[in-house]
Amino acid sequence: MYEAVELRDGDKGKYLGHGVSRAVKNINEKISEALIGLDPIHQYQIDQALLDLDKTENKADLGANAILAVSIAACKAGAAEKEVPLYKHIADISGNTGLLLPVPAFSVISGGKHAGNSLSVQGIMILPTGANTFEEAMQMGSETYHHLKAVITEKYGADACNVGEDGGFAPNISSFKDGLDLVNEAIERTGYNERIKIAMDVAATEFCIGTKYDLDIKSPNKSGQNFKSGEDMIGMYTQLCTDYPIVSIEEPFDKEDWENTKLFSSLGICQVVGDNLLASNLKRIERAIHESTCNALLLKLNQIGTVTEAIEVVKLAKDANWGIVVSQRSGETEDSFIADLAVGLATGQIKAGAPCRGERLAKYNQLLRIEEELGDQADYAGERWRLS
């Protein structure tokens, strides 16, 4: 509800109402005319022209999907005009002097709205923080993913290896611990033990009922029997971080539960990532920084709507010494822009799904190409995790 508006057609007779012909029409008939004569090298001018044309705070007139598509296209055109790689152009326009290959957060277990199992948590991820290069991180992540498939097959059968929207496996488990045990065993089989850490995308907003959290909300026969208070959830997360090598938890509480998010973050146990709490929204990020609510930003481009605004919130998060995770969406495309964005802005982290499915691999393959192109100048962010 705090994201920029993604304009859909609403015609139930076409694409179940999810069509985007209105947004396309806005590009072809309104936006294109307003941008004639502007230089794509000057990203700020183009994005400001888009904002001036829309005039709404949440981009509801033209649609954030129309605005972002043009903003990204202009950014790519600017790089082409300068004859430099996209990530270098992004670094230039942001004033960033150092390029950084991000640590990938590979989704390996899917639940929540992303899968049809009974797991309330939206995803469990692995982070190859102990890799020395991005290429090595890809190898470690892929090997662990395939070992996990074998672990799940042995315990639950081959039909338990179907995958969720972001490519993570979706066995019919219901508890956080069951999922974490599967991932831990897969990591042990690879022999990478200390070199791979675990992250969770809880997406607690999806199972928050009033001020309580229903951990069995997806189990029809159990729903309402396993309610947890905010205090209970903090205790559970604290214990999980003790029992497993968890270094990051995303959206541990409801998007309006600022108090418990702050209490948990203050413990300093792990990176606490704001997703729906922040919605990549400048005002909410400023509030979270002021109140010390969390310590990391999940950056989703279409939540904010332009490349310039994304750069601004990243700078804000960096000034607060926050972690920054450039993120996919569940309905991804094969476009790889966020890979260049993560390198150009030196965010240090990227969440692009599992090491499978074309729309996920597109980002990882682009990062491999970037690392190869940078050669000896390539810098992988894993060392920063090890030092911290």
Rank of each mutant, 00 (worst) to 15 (best):
L16G: 12
S223G: 06
A352E: 06
I187K: 03
G13E: 04
T144I: 01
R386Y: 05
N172Q: 13
D47N: 03
E291I: 09
G167E: 00
Q377T: 11
G17C: 14
Q271A: 08
G13M: 13
G168V: 03
L180F: 03
V70G: 05
C356R: 10
G10R: 13
L215P: 07
K228R: 02
M125S: 12
Y192M: 11
V20D: 11
G167L: 04
S292P: 08
L282C: 08
N193H: 05
Q328N: 15
A288W: 02
K283Q: 08
L215Q: 10
Y213L: 01
G382P: 04
Y87L: 00
I93C: 05
H147C: 10
D61Q: 05
S110P: 12
K12R: 11
G230S: 03
N162K: 11
A77D: 10
A34L: 04
C270T: 07
E251F: 13
V103R: 01
L148Y: 14
L387V: 13
A60F: 06
R287M: 05
A34N: 08
N65W: 12
K262D: 01
L297W: 01
I90P: 07
I152K: 07
C270R: 07
N193M: 00
G111H: 03
M140H: 12
A115D: 10
S229K: 14
R22C: 11
F169C: 02
K222Y: 04
S336D: 14
A91Y: 11
L127F: 11
Q271E: 10
E136M: 12
W322Q: 04
E250N: 09
N281G: 09
N321G: 11
G123K: 02
W322V: 03
E165V: 03
G13C: 12
H18C: 12
L367W: 06
V121E: 14
S229I: 00
Y244L: 06
D275L: 06
P252T: 10
A79D: 06
I93Q: 06
Y44Q: 07
G112F: 13
V163Y: 08
Q239T: 08
I72Y: 10
A64H: 06
D166C: 10
K318F: 07
S292K: 13
V84Y: 05
K12C: 05
L240S: 12
L53W: 04
S330D: 12
G344Y: 07
S71P: 13
K351I: 05
